[in-house]
Amino acid sequence: MQTGDLLDVTPEALVKAIVRRRKALASTLPKELERRTEENDRAYALAKPPKGASEKDEQNPEVEEENETFRRRTVSRLWSVRHAVEDTEEALAFWTQMETGDWGHLLEDARRVEEGGKSSYALRKKSEVDEV
């Protein structure tokens, strides 16, 4: 994107673009969640021997360790998707509310710069210098 185009981006347009992206992401998540849940169930089944299995059926330690690693990985993936679902719901609610033009608090730094004040980077630099 060219500089001129970036300068033409308005808060309304950016909020809309974010909502669009979030909605697109939200539409893929249920399928992803389903796939990860299924994968996790499979990993559990592999890692845990069925009840009543005899000593003869016991797996060798290497396979057991491999199954356990797979299980742990699937748990992590599943949680990532669950967090993504939660975050997406929260984000969609937030950005949908922003679509009404309620973004004022997000533009405080921009307003300060427009009014001739220092940028947040300059302020941070100054506070770092003061701390030293």
């Binding site: 950016l14 997000l106 947040s120």
Partner: peptide, 10 residues
Amino acid sequence: FSKFFEMQAM
């Protein structure tokens, strides 16, 4: 979002 518009102003 906030930084984008601050940078735009800068």
